[in-house]
Design a protein around this nucleic acid. Structure first.
Length: 210
DNA sequence: ACTCCGATCTTCT
DNA sequence: GAAGATCGGAGTC
């Protein structure tokens, strides 16, 4: 079964609920790992201050402007890779960040890749953990989910859905103005919500740290 | 359970 | 030059 791309033609914040419960499978020489998606965040268009595309098209975010059903990957914090499913018609920068899920196949391989996880529920709890558990790397950027080693099987949106502000996003983009975090309520693989916290503290006499 | 903090480097200003 | 769609360890409660 291959991906029906037309189901992704809407803006990411409309597609997001139907991604919950869907199955993402990544094949590799070591075996396949499948994930039941339990948490995503939508980023959409040039008016979204939380999006990498807010300031227009660049080399990094170009994939998000392209055909829906491809994978947008990016590297952040000096060590982490995150992945988005590209949504909306070509020309519109729209994507759903894969934030968390439950491993439903290949759990031994996922455990091997995520040595620091104590519980299975933590294997893909968080966007960077998810890519490690599945074996997704930066090189998978641009991959077509209809015909590559990575495939997406849409479930049809039968699950319960909760929404709220996006995790870790700075400024207006992280507020209730953009309630574009979507998760399956009560699922133990969903990551905890964190508001954005600035890296450096306010300079003060008692806090000489810059 | 929750808070603080260092690691590490690409990307854009 | 600084911030960042994060993680895990150490410390505290």
């Amino acid at each position: 079964m291959s991906l029906n791309r037309s189901l992704l033609l809407a803006p990411s914040f409309e597609v997001a609920p139907s991604l919950l419960g869907s199955i993402l499978t990544v094949n590799s020489p070591d075996g396949a790992v499948s994930l039941r998606i339990t948490e995503v965040e939508a980023y959409h268009g040039s008016a979204d201050p939380g999006s990498h595309a807010f300031r227009g098209k660049t080399d990094r975010n170009a994939v998000m402007f392209g055909e829906p059903g491809h994978l947008y990957t990016y590297f952040t914090y000096g060590m982490h890779t995150c992945a988005n499913v590209v949504c909306a018609p070509e020309g519109q920068a729209s994507g759903c960040l894969l934030r968390a899920g439950e491993i439903v196949e290949g759990i031994e391989l996922a455990r091997f890749r995520r040595q620091t996880s104590r519980a299975d529920a933590d294997l893909a709890k968080g966007p960077a953990r998810l890519t490690v558990a599945l074996g997704i790397t930066l090189d998978d950027g641009g991959a077509d989910l209809a015909e590559s080693r990575i495939s997406l099987e849409l479930c049809g949106g039968n699950t319960e859905v909760a929404t709220g502000p996006r995790t870790g996003v700075s400024g207006l983009g992280g507020t209730a103005e953009f309630p574009w975090r979507f998760w399956i309520p009560g699922d133990r693989t969903v990551s905890p919500y964190k508001a954005h916290s600035p890296k450096k503290r306010e300079p003060s006499e008692f806090n000489p740290r810059r």
